[in-house]
Amino acid sequence: GTEDLKEEAKKALKKGDKERAKRALKKAGLSEDQIKKFIKEVL
Results as ranks from 00 to 15, higher is better:
Gly1Glu: 13
Gly1Cys: 11
Gly1Arg: 12
Thr2Ser: 11
Thr2Ala: 12
Thr2His: 12
Glu3Asn: 10
Glu3Met: 10
Glu3Leu: 10
Glu3Phe: 08
Asp4Met: 12
Asp4Lys: 12
Leu5Gln: 04
Leu5Pro: 06
Leu5Ala: 08
Glu7Cys: 06
Glu7Ser: 08
Glu7Asp: 09
Glu7Lys: 08
Glu7Tyr: 07
Glu8Phe: 12
Glu8Gly: 03
Glu8Asn: 04
Ala9Glu: 01
Ala9Lys: 01
Lys10His: 06
Lys10Tyr: 12
Lys10Val: 13
Lys11Met: 12
Lys11Asp: 12
Ala12Phe: 14
Ala12Asn: 04
Leu13Asn: 00
Leu13Phe: 04
Lys15Ser: 14
Lys15Thr: 12
Gly16His: 05
Gly16Met: 04
Gly16Asn: 05
Asp17Trp: 08
Asp17Thr: 02
Lys18Ala: 12
Lys18Ile: 15
Lys18Phe: 15
Lys18Gly: 08
Glu19Gly: 07
Glu19Trp: 09
Glu19Cys: 08
Arg20His: 10
Arg20Gln: 11
Arg20Asp: 06
Arg20Glu: 11
Ala21Lys: 00
Ala21Cys: 06
Ala21Asn: 00
Lys22Tyr: 15
Lys22Arg: 14
Lys22Val: 15
Lys22Glu: 14
Lys22Gln: 11
Lys22Ile: 15
Lys22Cys: 12
Arg23Leu: 11
Arg23Asp: 11
Arg23His: 09
Ala24Gly: 02
Leu25Arg: 01
Leu25Ile: 01
Leu25Val: 00
Lys26Ala: 11
Lys26Met: 12
Lys27Val: 06
Lys27Gln: 12
Lys27Asn: 07
Lys27Met: 13
Lys27Asp: 09
Ala28Gly: 04
Ala28Asp: 02
Ala28Val: 04
Gly29Glu: 02
Gly29Asp: 02
Leu30Tyr: 09
Leu30Met: 12
Leu30Thr: 00
Leu30Arg: 00
Ser31His: 04
Ser31Ala: 05
Ser31Glu: 05
Ser31Asp: 11
Ser31Gly: 05
Glu32Val: 08
Glu32Met: 08
Asp33Phe: 07
Asp33Leu: 08
Gln34Lys: 04
Gln34Met: 07
Gln34Trp: 04
Ile35Glu: 01
Ile35Val: 05
Lys36Val: 13
Lys36Phe: 10
Lys37Thr: 11
Lys37Glu: 15
Phe38Ile: 05
Lys40Met: 14
Lys40Asp: 15
Lys40Pro: 02
Lys40Tyr: 15
Glu41Val: 06
Glu41Cys: 10
Val42Asn: 11
Leu43Ile: 08
Leu43Val: 06
Leu43Arg: 05
